[in-house]
Computed example of a mutant assay.
Amino acid sequence: MSLHYARGFEIGYFDGYTRVLVYNPWAENEIMARYYLYREDSSLLPKDGYHVRIPLSSLAIASCTHVAFLDLLDELDLLRGVCNASMVYNPVLRQSINEGQVADLGDAFRIKREILLQIRPQALMASGYNQYDEHLQAISQAGVSILYNNEWMEQNLLARAEWLRFVACFLDKDRLADSLFRQTEANYLRLKELASSAAGSAPVVMSGDNFRGSWYMPGGRSHQAQLFRDAGASYFFENDSTTGSIALGFEQVVRDFNQADIWIGASNATDLNALLAMDERYVWFKSVKNKQVYSYQGRMTADGANDYWESAVVRPDSLLADFIKLFHPELLPGHEWIYINQLP
């Protein structure tokens, strides 16, 4: 299968099996995991990787970002366990958790192995990290396949969404994933073209907030900065080459961003008064004075589960529509924000 955006995995079709390679994001050209997917026991498989029978009969996940992939493919019923269950937003899955049909596996970095081995899923989907994980190794040795879903390391919003193809391979739903992703891609590119037609000057945007003395801004090559560009905003670091976050001191943020028109991603404050109570110096920013401060709390449960970390990963077109509505509301007059909300 030809991938258009994702760089972290590769899919190949062979006689009797499908090969899925997951690359190590921290070591160029190094393979993190090699999977051979088969349907028939008689299949002759190479011995240099994990053998996984498809479609999967059951699954556990270690990250809430994986929920939306399964939901889009109509496979939530496969789930037997999930880490950090209180952080799940999806209403259907929350009900299954509350009814005891899906187990809470605890923290993703300290998975409750005894519970996982009791429910015995065929596989555990987990995020890979640049370190040895003894919990995942022990789970693998106990016979549960570890599927490394590293969508979070991609630098492009459509690349993150394209990991839908990776998930679909294990569910034998490759064609459905191809159709769904192509639709998302087409919507995204259409919205990007719409944003490029905006009249007037681009609004200047700032992001993040002050956390223990450091203010983390998206690097110029990060997917967040890409979102600002594609939605038609101007961003101070848009020509920067950093793919992750940039740590800044408060004084530098005041110097470079005090005249920004819009502030997005401002902490977990529910209103401007609460935001100023966290740091009264925020009042120095034009965006605060003009009440142009926004956060990603458009879809949240009472206990803090946020759909921004779930469905926005697989629906970057919906996220882009939110940002176009924020930066150029005249272009999408009928759109209602999904993930964004304004601090009153």
Results as ranks from 00 to 15, higher is better:
residue 6 A to L: 15
residue 10 E to V: 07
residue 11 I to N: 07
residue 15 D to S: 08
residue 16 G to V: 13
residue 17 Y to W: 08
residue 18 T to S: 06
residue 25 P to E: 07
residue 26 W to E: 06
residue 28 E to Y: 04
residue 32 M to C: 00
residue 39 R to G: 10
residue 43 S to V: 01
residue 51 H to F: 12
residue 54 I to T: 14
residue 55 P to H: 01
residue 59 L to E: 11
residue 62 A to T: 09
residue 63 S to W: 12
residue 68 A to S: 15
residue 71 D to F: 01
residue 72 L to M: 08
residue 72 L to R: 07
residue 73 L to M: 00
residue 79 L to W: 03
residue 81 G to W: 07
residue 82 V to T: 14
residue 87 M to F: 05
residue 88 V to Y: 11
residue 88 V to G: 15
residue 89 Y to W: 10
residue 92 V to R: 05
residue 94 R to C: 06
residue 96 S to A: 13
residue 99 E to Q: 04
residue 104 D to N: 10
residue 104 D to L: 03
residue 105 L to C: 09
residue 106 G to R: 14
residue 109 F to P: 00
residue 110 R to K: 14
residue 112 K to I: 07
residue 121 P to H: 08
residue 122 Q to S: 08
residue 124 L to S: 01
residue 137 Q to K: 12
residue 141 Q to D: 09
residue 144 V to A: 02
residue 149 N to W: 04
residue 151 E to D: 15
residue 156 N to L: 08
residue 157 L to H: 07
residue 157 L to S: 06
residue 159 A to E: 01
residue 162 E to I: 08
residue 167 V to E: 04
residue 173 K to S: 10
residue 177 A to M: 05
residue 179 S to Q: 11
residue 180 L to I: 12
residue 190 R to F: 00
residue 191 L to Y: 15
residue 193 E to C: 09
residue 201 S to P: 05
residue 203 P to Q: 06
residue 205 V to K: 13
residue 207 S to E: 04
residue 207 S to K: 04
residue 213 G to N: 07
residue 217 M to A: 01
residue 218 P to S: 11
residue 223 H to A: 13
residue 223 H to P: 14
residue 224 Q to W: 03
residue 225 A to K: 08
residue 225 A to I: 08
residue 227 L to C: 11
residue 231 A to V: 12
residue 231 A to W: 08
residue 235 Y to G: 13
residue 238 E to C: 05
residue 242 T to W: 01
residue 243 T to S: 14
residue 243 T to E: 12
residue 244 G to S: 13
residue 246 I to Y: 03
residue 246 I to F: 02
residue 247 A to T: 14
residue 249 G to N: 15
residue 251 E to Q: 13
residue 252 Q to E: 13
residue 261 D to L: 09
residue 264 I to R: 01
residue 268 N to R: 08
residue 270 T to R: 15
residue 271 D to M: 02
residue 272 L to F: 11
residue 274 A to Y: 05
residue 276 L to N: 00
residue 276 L to R: 03
residue 280 E to N: 13
residue 281 R to M: 10
residue 282 Y to H: 01
residue 285 F to S: 02
residue 286 K to M: 03
residue 287 S to T: 02
residue 288 V to M: 15
residue 295 S to F: 03
residue 296 Y to I: 12
residue 298 G to Q: 05
residue 299 R to L: 14
residue 302 A to D: 02
residue 305 A to C: 07
residue 307 D to K: 09
residue 308 Y to A: 06
residue 314 V to M: 00
residue 320 L to T: 11
residue 326 L to G: 00
residue 326 L to Y: 02
residue 327 F to Q: 03
residue 334 G to V: 04
residue 336 E to I: 07
residue 337 W to G: 05
residue 340 I to H: 09
residue 344 P to Q: 09
